Amino acid sequence: MSFLCCQSVIAKGAFHWIAIPLLIGIFATVASIQHMSFPLYFVANAFFLIAVLMMIFFRDPPRAIGKGIVSPADGKVLKVDHKSGELSIFMNIHNVHVNRAPIEGKVVEVERFPGGHSPAYSEKARKNERVEITIMSRLGPMKVIQIAGLVARRIVPYVRHGMYLQKGQRIGMIVFGSGVTVEMPDRVRIIVKEGQKVRAGETSVGEVVHDLD
C-alpha cells in the first residue's frame, strides 16, 4: 500500500542556498528605497529571482511510495545491466535533487570517495566524487551510489552507519543533480528500461524474483 512519505517542501541542507540571495535582495531593496537608486532596485529583483530559482531547484515534495524496489532518484534511466543488477539514473538540473531509499533496511556502510567531475552520462563518471551507501535489506545488501557531475559539486548524505531506513525515506541530496547508481541483490529483477523517466520513491524499478533458475 502506497503512502505519502515525509511531508516537506525544501530539501534538507538547502536553506543557505535560498537564504543568502533572499537576504541580499531584501538589503538591496531597502538601499534602493533609501537612495532612490534604480540600479540597486534591479540588483534586488535579480537576487529575488535567484532565490525563487533556488526554491525550485531544492524543492522536496512528498511522494506516494511505490511497490517493490523503488527508484532512488528522479531522472532518466541511463543504463540497465540485468546481468550485474546495476541500474544507473541521470538526474538533470530540473529534477528533484533529493534521493530516497529504494528498499527498507539498515545502513551498514557510508563511504565518500574523492574524484573528478566528468559529465554524469559519460563512462568516466564512475571515477567521479561519490558517496556509496550500503543498505542491508531482507534480500541482501543493496548499494546506492550518489555520483557528482559536471555541475554538481557537492553530495549531502542524510544517513549514517547503523540507521534503519524505511523504503522511500530520504537518504541524501546531490546539489544541482547528477547521477545515482543502484546495485541490486541477486533476487531482484530490474523492470525499467533505458530512457524511461523515473521518480524517487514512486516508480517501481525492481521486483523480487521468487524462483531462481
Rank of each mutant, 00 (worst) to 15 (best):
residue 44 A to R: 07
residue 69 I to V: 14
residue 115 G to N: 10
residue 36 M to G: 07
residue 183 E to L: 15
residue 149 G to T: 09
residue 92 N to V: 07
residue 23 L to N: 06
residue 197 K to G: 00
residue 55 M to A: 15
residue 20 I to D: 02
residue 104 E to P: 11
residue 3 F to S: 09
residue 20 I to P: 03
residue 20 I to E: 03
residue 151 V to Q: 04
residue 85 G to D: 10
residue 81 D to N: 14
residue 135 I to S: 10
residue 162 G to S: 12
residue 65 I to S: 03
residue 53 L to C: 12
residue 105 G to D: 08
residue 179 G to Q: 07
residue 129 E to L: 09
residue 13 G to D: 03
residue 34 Q to K: 15
residue 42 F to V: 15
residue 51 A to Y: 12
residue 148 A to Y: 08
residue 102 P to A: 06
residue 185 P to T: 12
residue 92 N to M: 14
residue 102 P to G: 03
residue 209 V to L: 15
residue 175 V to H: 12
residue 128 N to G: 09
residue 112 R to G: 05
residue 186 D to T: 14
residue 12 K to R: 15
residue 94 H to G: 01
residue 166 Q to W: 08
residue 72 P to Q: 09
residue 194 E to A: 10
residue 37 S to D: 01
residue 165 L to E: 03
residue 76 K to M: 13
residue 46 A to M: 15
residue 59 R to E: 00
residue 173 M to S: 13
residue 14 A to G: 05
residue 132 E to K: 15
residue 168 G to W: 05
residue 7 Q to H: 04
residue 106 K to V: 10
residue 68 G to Q: 04
residue 89 I to T: 01
residue 157 P to Q: 13
residue 122 S to F: 11
residue 92 N to D: 12
residue 81 D to A: 05
residue 77 V to H: 01
residue 36 M to S: 10
residue 2 S to A: 13
residue 90 F to S: 03
residue 64 A to G: 04
residue 198 V to L: 09
residue 152 A to Y: 05
residue 173 M to E: 04
residue 130 R to Y: 09
residue 200 A to W: 00
residue 141 P to W: 07
residue 87 L to G: 02
residue 154 R to H: 10
residue 212 L to S: 12
residue 61 P to M: 02
residue 104 E to W: 02
residue 30 V to G: 04
residue 69 I to Q: 04
residue 171 I to K: 00
residue 209 V to T: 14
residue 48 F to L: 15
residue 162 G to P: 04
residue 89 I to S: 02
residue 103 I to E: 09
residue 113 F to E: 05
residue 85 G to P: 08
residue 20 I to A: 08
residue 16 H to C: 02
residue 67 K to I: 11
